[in-house]
Design a binder for these strands. Structure first.
Lengths: 204, 204, 204, 204
DNA sequence: TATGAATGAGTCTTCATTCAT
DNA sequence: AATGAATGAAGACTCATTCAT
């Protein structure tokens, strides 16, 4: 009942806590929250079960801290190195690169992606994290466009739609949920849609 | 060794089985699969725990049967009454109606939606159901378009993208995940995007 | 609570009861008492579960009635056709025949044998049945010997020992529990032991 | 996925595990495997139900470990102190002692004996244990005889038969299954049979 | 007589969390 | 700060038996 959660100060202790987060989050991403138990987390992290509850309120806490620490690497790696510059003239190339980057990123961690997306749909806090970061991403791209002289008008909505389109494509390519889907064609259609979204900025 | 699952024959028993599916599926949709236990399902359905296991292999089975029975109403109600006809001239109206229909439908069962979407991301069988029906939906719309003289070229991909756009909008409106999002504007942008997708069919 | 067990009078009902006994006893013999459930018995006997409890007090009752009806066929078939006659001169042949008969009988129903022997060791009533019949068998053989002019002295004990020897051999041959055991040799040793037991009757 | 069974390291924990084995095995021996539940084992051992499953895979595991730990004391105590020496001249005495030893041992734990024998007839692993140890016992006696200049010829079979005879007698005396059985007489007959088995070694 | 639907106590087992050391 | 032993409530599932028809 008493909140005894201790923030580790010694170097070794800090490492321990981080190992728990890493291992715990990985296991949850791989097998799902309910199929991961604390004993396994502790054992794989090389610590005792007791220590887990000195650094974390409960199992759920591990998930949230893991999400905060590793979530961006999985979902929004772009946020970290978005110092992309581009000219309106090569806008299409930028989009193509972006798609490729997105797809590659998904490929690396598609299991985690699915598991976290599952929780985005069922857990308030995970959802909160996700939508907050998604918003940041949207703004980040929006700002990038503004920096490149895109008209601010309706930009927020346009970027959101663009991201949805890319995400949809990405999902299709990675999880291959529909046979008969021609990915290259779909990609071109989506790029065309995006260009259409920004036609006012691109044509003049 | 023996398949103990009994298919009820008496009227009262059939009703009972259906009550279990309904109650069980609802509870799972409301609270999540892992937060719903068989005792609760049984008690809320007004039956004993034992009877549950005479009609269902296990708890998971209730989910799957519920999905088969109610899933379409929640996710793909359009599949049932898709005898919509339209003229290319009122294409935009059709899309607007479709969006409205979609949004209204989401509104009714948004909790279930989220919980099931969660499982689409974490459970193979639920995913299988979902993507199969989504495919049917895609084909159904595709056929509708063909019937209305849309060119078959790339139609599959186009419809898929269109559905993604609508879904994205819908999600935005219902769950209100991003402040500052102007829904009407977004809706118009999406309709414009869809019209652009089918520009070859609509312009001539 | 009230003893409602009904003795069936109609022909069809009698057949039903007998089918339950047969199927139930067979299943118990094959899979063990605890691994056999009444639902399975009923279904394999082609009757409803309810009817079982009109003819039998409980599951255990099926076992006991089955034992009474079929036990002898499995364990003591000799009791039924023991009108063997023999001369002291061919005593050894009689023993050899007896062993063969025993072994063959075991072979036919060795699974049932084991399962029932298991219960002989754990259930009072099954034990009671078994030892009672074994006693009858002993006496029956004893009488046979007396009829053939064996001296009554110590006959009871001698026959019992003889039967133990044969049973031991039989078990060895059927279940093959020990490698390196030379069965023919063992058989000869046992026959020699039996002849030794009755040496007073055989030598003069 | 992960082997959760923990081997206790702390002294108190080891004692606890041993108490579970002891209590569990005793209860199973007294009441039978199916009539013993884990809750009872735990409570009688003075531990929680949870701890049982940290030391044992399942209920069956308790039985097997109990068998391994206590089985020999019950069934084959001779294996532990078989440094008996004897002369051919006092062979009969040795046999008589052996019988007495056997009978006394049976007396101490006759309930356990029966329950385990029941499982020897119905459970593969218990059977495996039993026949393996019985074989060891046979060999041990065989070696004892060889050391005392018995001819190796057919010794394996002879010892096996001898043990069967003793076991039969023992069973008779302990469980008293047949009235009218004269035990002293039977004992003498059996000793005579055994001596006859080894007559070649004893006469010269 | 017969059916098969229904009961619910009972069983094994898991696991997040706490405790003693 | 750390261990790992211990807890016990909770959950899924079974099955002999009874009940309603």
């Amino acid at each position: 009942m008493i909140d005894n959660i201790r923030e580790p100060k010694q170097k070794r202790a800090i490492e321990k806590k981080e190992r728990i987060i890493e291992v715990g989050f990985n296991l949850i991403c791989k097998n799902g929250y309910y199929n991961t138990n604390t004993a396994e987390i502790a054992s794989q992290a090389g610590v005792s079960t007791g220590i887990v509850y000195q650094y974390f309120k409960d199992k759920y806490d591990i998930l949230i801290e893991g999400l905060e620490k590793y979530g961006d690497d999985i979902f929004f790696p772009m946020l970290k190195n978005s110092n992309i510059t581009f000219d309106k003239k090569n806008f299409e190339d930028v989009i193509r690169n972006m798609i490729e980057y997105y797809v590659n990123n998904h490929k690396i961690s598609n299991v985690a992606h699915e598991e976290i997306m599952s929780m985005v749909h069922s857990d308030k806090q995970v959802a909160k994290y996700y939508y907050k970061r998604e918003l940041e991403m949207t703004n980040s791209i929006k700002n990038l466009l503004i920096k490149n002289n895109f008209n601010d008008n309706n930009l927020y909505e346009k970027v959101h739609i663009m991201m949805g389109l890319i995400d949809n494509l990405c999902h299709e390519i990675i999880y291959h949920k529909h046979d008969n889907m021609n990915y290259d064609l779909m990609k071109n259609l989506i790029i065309d849609s995006i260009k259409n979204l920004f036609k006012n900025d691109l044509t003049n």
